[in-house]
């Protein structure tokens, strides 16, 4: 990029920003969270991932052009207790030695009206890929773009918890995933 184009880009973002639109593209890891709720014997248990990277390009003025990618470090899981953390990285569950990362790559974003959107793409865990759609909301907050969404993942679709653990009366098949992703405007460098 020439200095002139950077200047132009900055100006454009500044103008667009003041008009309430900009492309958000700089992932803010420390402000973003990826949490989940699993169910054990009918008891909801909170968990989260400590390490993940998102690359995102989202302009609320042109949502259909948006794209997103997630790279999730599965070993960074906090499954609610030490026992669970030790168990869940093992072979029947996430098998992180062989499959250290899960990825999501978007294929389409569809506006649903208001601040609501739908994200579609491919989720890959443990070497298995599945199409996924998830609703999310977008809002601007203190100059950042904030994306909040949730969806239900069926763990057995990815052979997560197979063998004796495939009995879903102990650990439910459905895992609710919630993401809260914060991104700064793309063209503004800090």
């Amino acid at each position: 990029m020439t200095p002139f184009r950077i200047l132009l880009g900055t100006l454009a973002v500044a103008v667009a920003g003041s008009a309430g639109a900009a492309e958000y593209g700089q992932f803010q890891a420390d402000k973003s969270t990826l949490t989940f709720v699993s169910k054990q014997m009918g008891v909801p248990i909170d968990g989260r991932f400590r390490k993940f990277a998102v690359s995102v390009a989202f302009d609320p003025a042109r949502p259909t052009a948006a794209s997103a990618r997630l790279d999730l470090d599965l070993a960074s899981i906090d499954a609610g207790s030490k026992d669970a953390d030790d168990e869940v990285v093992g072979k029947p569950w996430l098998h992180v030695k062989v499959f250290p990362t899960a990825t999501f790559v978007s294929s389409a974003v569809r506006p649903l009206g208001g601040d609501k959107y739908e994200l579609a793409g491919k989720l890959t865990i443990k070497g298995k890929s599945q199409d996924l759609t998830a609703p999310f909301t977008f809002r601007q907050d203190g100059g950042n773009g904030v994306f909040d969404g949730a969806f239900i993942l069926k763990r057995l679709d990815f052979a997560v918890g197979d063998g004796v653990w495939s009995d879903v009366s102990t650990v439910a098949n459905e895992v609710q995933i919630k993401f809260h992703i914060v991104a700064a405007p793309a063209a503004v460098r800090k």
Binding site: Q40, M41, G42, V43, D83, A84, D86, E87, V164, W165, D167, T170, V171
Partner: peptide, 11 residues
């Protein structure tokens, strides 16, 4: 050791 059986017994 952690197993579905253990989770059931705890419950």
């Amino acid at each position: 050791p952690v197993s579905p059986q253990k989770l059931k017994l705890y419950s």
